[in-house]
Design a protein around this nucleic acid. Sequence first.
DNA 1: ATGCTAAGCGGGGTAAAGTCCGTTTATGCT
DNA 2: AGCATAAACGGACTTTACCCCGCTTAGCAT
Lengths: 204, 204
Amino acid sequence: MNTPVVPFGKPRGERADAVRNRERLLETARAMITEHGPGKVTMDGLAERAELGKGTVFRRFGSRAGIFRALLDDDERRFQEQVLSGPPPLGPGADAEQRLIAYGRARIPFLLDHHAIARAAMDHTQPASEDGVGMTQPHIRMLLGQAGLLVPLPLLDSLAVQLTAALEAPLLLYLSMDEAPGPSGSAHLLSESWQVLVERVMRG
Amino acid sequence: MNTPVVPFGKPRGERADAVRNRERLLETARAMITEHGPGKVTMDGLAERAELGKGTVFRRFGSRAGIFRALLDDDERRFQEQVLSGPPPLGPGADAEQRLIAYGRARIPFLLDHHAIARAAMDHTQPASEDGVGMTQPHIRMLLGQAGLLVPLPLLDSLAVQLTAALEAPLLLYLSMDEAPGPSGSAHLLSESWQVLVERVMRG
DNA sequence: ATGCTAAGCGGGGTAAAGTCCGTTTATGCT
DNA sequence: AGCATAAACGGACTTTACCCCGCTTAGCAT
């Protein structure tokens, strides 16, 4: 008759030392990234600087890419909150077209800010499902569904895939990324053409 | 007064043994890929099986990704010929919209066939300009230009980038890729939604 | 033919990702 | 407190991409 409170409260919570070490590793990784860039973050170096074993690093994050994914997750979650419950047109309340445009306009600077880490978080040894498919595709799919496009249903899925690619892939793999921000930068152009893309897809 | 023929004929052509070894390496790589998949092709294994030194492999191809790029180049060139001088609507002769649609419908099965090698050919240690940006983006850009869209000129560039991403990225990074071909496969769906995408972008 | 030279060759060496398994320790129970 | 146990830890080990540099050889000129 024990464990009276919390009937199913995680029977085996994460151990305290594990939590401490994970945070320490993330903090150390962030420091190494701001000092020398993501390319210089090695598993050995990270473990040594955090004064932990290499085995621990892999236990926590699974792979090198996993570290960067974990680093992104924080900011990604904040971004997602804006989308799910922030003010319109990014959050709910605007119509689907406006939300799609707003999503791209917010997402592009986000990826621009994080593109070094986001690139490092890609793991092309895995098929592709595991890594950061993320929230963009489901969100776009949902908005396409709400818009009532005059296309067969299964096409909505592949349209969502392709629009996701149009939005994210340029910053992940096609662009060199070495320019100052500004209205002439490619970020601004991509935002503009994203809007054109969305407007034309929605008004078929 | 010698070298009478060929005034500027490549003063230093590729050496015969180098040519022989390159072809031998490509052949061996192809064999290893069909036997065990691209993931199992290691530089040591390739060198040993081709009975050459590891240094030779790197001299010829620069990196692991370089091998797969070289392997793709053959087929890529054949594909490009169809686009540049084949029959319409893929080749010249049809209007821009028809050519864009035809390009995607031809490109998707091509990438599907080669996706294992294409993925292996991506090198995400380099910024992104070096590797396979390829011919798709310029071709799409050209067709967009011909179509006379009612958008500011610089937007044509970023639209081309985004349409390229919409066409190629799904097969390079978002799709898991383990299904039988057929009208229900994602290849067919992607072709259909590519057509929708193009039609709506062109008819603004 | 023969010698010169630049290109090609080869394999040992380094660095970094990822694995394994014996050791240590936090946590819950008595 | 003392114990049992599952989880966490750590670092040696393996694998693989990529570098380096002395040796060999093709291609050319005499």
